[in-house]
Write a protein that binds this DNA or RNA. Sequence first.
DNA 1: TAACTTACACACAAAAAAGTTAGTAAAAAA
DNA 2: TTTTTTACTAACTTTTTTGTGTGTAAGTTA
Lengths: 112, 112
Amino acid sequence: MKDSNRDVTMAERDQLVLRRTLDIICGKWRLFILLNLGEHTRRYGELRRMMPDVSEKVLIQELKSLISLGVLEKESFSEVPPRVEYRLTTKGRGILPHLNSLHLIGAPFMED
Amino acid sequence: MKDSNRDVTMAERDQLVLRRTLDIICGKWRLFILLNLGEHTRRYGELRRMMPDVSEKVLIQELKSLISLGVLEKESFSEVPPRVEYRLTTKGRGILPHLNSLHLIGAPFMED
DNA sequence: TAACTTACACACAAAAAAGTTAGTAAAAAA
DNA sequence: TTTTTTACTAACTTTTTTGTGTGTAAGTTA
């Protein structure tokens, strides 16, 4: 009984962890933001130019979300015109090694 | 020139592969369908009972999508009441070993 | 005979994600 | 002086995703 109860709560915890993963990588652009940042620090406009197909609003919105998830951090400089830099947090950089697995998941399903 | 062109097309191919990955795992329920199937063959109603929070319509819809992606296959028996079984395809089973990486991505972001 | 079962389909509604367009501050460049 | 630049915000529309509720065939069970 004790064990099966613990199993249930572990399964639930696993669900939450997986949902958190989905929060981080799902969405049309999140993964590409992570890839384009990598180990670099980049300005907003620089990211914008690297991803010409995402709208400004959505890019900013996604950057905000990733910041509030703890994946990214941003630094604003009091200059005119404004300068804002984005980079992965330490935890965020921990995601990078796993992106290869994501590649391996989709690869076999390409020729359909 | 040749090299940089090839780089571009490889980057584009990578994007497509990643998007395919997202097709497979994103959505509120897809990952849990994969987890609940695992190496098993299960009837529709069995899945339904394992995931009480997903509506019938959405479950069927997601099963269909996963079938057309080549992740699942289904077998219908001509019985009454009807019996329909779902299982991962061979390619689909190839996803399972990578689910651990998905876990590792989200885990560090849980205590926020 | 009435009720129950299974694996759906269909019409519709609500919610979430993504996109479009216009506007802003304030300095520097033309 | 007008234009350009940067990194946004705000209002709004479109598209996609998810959910709700009802109906159905045709046997089995009560």
